[in-house]
Write a protein that binds this DNA or RNA. Structure first.
Lengths: 233, 233
DNA sequence: GCAAAAGTGTTCACACTACACCCATGG
DNA sequence: CCATGGGTGTAGTGTGAACACTTTTGC
């Protein structure tokens, strides 16, 4: 490649946006911010950042998650969505957005950190209009999550170490956007053998009736997934 | 963003590589080229090109397909795979590769065009080592195609307007990389109701016994897919 | 005693699997 | 007449969907 060609091609900027899904045991939510500077000052956008040529996208997303929610990387599922590449998606010039999504459990710590950063959570199906092409990114992320949840047990990243079957079901209902039958749900989950009873129960003061707590059997899943096992749903 | 920041960020180059799957009725193949200039002169690579900041990726892929195979865009399935973004994937500098894959039927015209361009087809499971991170891209593409073929009738793009059930089955066997039972295959395909008998048959001179030709019912598929219908397999 | 949430089985329909033989034709 | 490839049916198994009542306990 000649110097001239290099000058022609090497003038694109890179950024990454993140569709962060948080589950608080009740609602599945998406994180957005109000933009503090131009372009689109005041508009709502996904968390994101520009990426210097020397920085990897993974590194950038990692930094973004630290900065915005002080996350625990071992309990967070992250995956690239795809590149959003329209020529005029950003008024500053050609900016390619390599979008990601992540799934986290909403702990009080995260809630606080997000608040201090000016972030706002919106229910999964009530995300307002966003600037740039971020509506499209959110739409794409939702579809991806729906599919993933059906075929891989990614949902467990949205729950704590221990959870009740009811919480798990509620999560699946939110992500799949439809109601599920309690008995069928339990059957399916227990048949998968990927859930282990921990022996603990919920705090009897919080609910009428205590319920058993379970955890996800990661080891067994690793083994199964090596054999090309598909979850279910 | 200050001018300084702009200078810092706007120095990435964009390229797109294409994993082109071709089916000739027998074998499912992938197209590669021998690289004519540095870096990696002489190595095998996927077809691809650098993308100027003013050109969209879709446009670039379109041009690439025209240039390499003179394709018919209405009979070709194209989809973005994802962005490959490693910092040091290209010795020239930071180059983000937004990879695509496409599915085409190998007509004699395409075969000829490819030959004249110096392209070579390799059987799906016998693609040799490629330069850059193209092995990884091919691997990713194969997995994507396998999944797509299971859930959406994309396979039909690899066949002509009319095809026999045997051809269709052979294609599925190649893409899924396993053998299928003839009777079960026919049952599944006909139950989907997405296949229409055209009334024509294969040329009696070519085979011992003529067989019926079918075509894909695109209209019906459009309707079904709006309702969230998943193909099968 | 009642509201709220946990927990539990059965039946039916459908889809997937495995499996073997006859037919038409060209050579 | 035989080699090639097209075409066909059944039985068994497993999975998904629909559906209602009992138990516990805080108030």
């Amino acid at each position: 490649m000649t110097d001239e060609e290099k000058a022609k091609y090497f003038q694109v900027a890179l950024c990454s946006s993140l569709v962060l899904f948080g589950f608080d045991g009740e609602e599945l939510k998406i994180l957005v911010y109000k933009k503090l500077n131009d372009p689109f000052k005041g508009a709502l956008v996904l968390p994101g950042k520009y990426i210097a040529p020397t920085v990897s996208n993974d590194q950038a997303i990692h930094e973004l998650l630290i900065e915005k929610i002080a996350y625990d990387e071992h309990q967070t599922y992250i995956e690239q969505l795809k590149a959003f590449t329209k020529v005029f998606r950003n008024p500053l010039g050609r900016v390619v957005n390599v979008a990601y999504y992540a799934l986290v459990k909403l702990t009080p710590q995260i809630q606080e950190k997000v608040k201090s950063q000016g972030g706002e959570w919106y229910a999964y199906d009530r995300v307002p209009d966003l600037a740039f092409d971020h509506n499209e990114i959110v739409q794409y992320a939702k579809e991806r999550v729906k599919r993933r949840v059906k075929r891989r047990p990614v949902g467990f990243n949205l729950l704590g170490d221990e959870f009740t079957i009811a919480q798990l079901q509620s999560l699946y209902e939110k992500a799949l956007n439809r109601e599920l039958d309690k008995r069928n749900f339990r059957k399916k989950i227990f048949n998968s053998n990927l859930i282990i009873e921990t022996g603990n129960t919920t705090d009897p003061k919080q609910h009428r009736k205590v319920s058993k707590l379970y955890r996800f059997d990661e080891e067994k899943y690793e083994k199964l997934s090596l054999k090309g096992y598909d979850f279910l749903f």
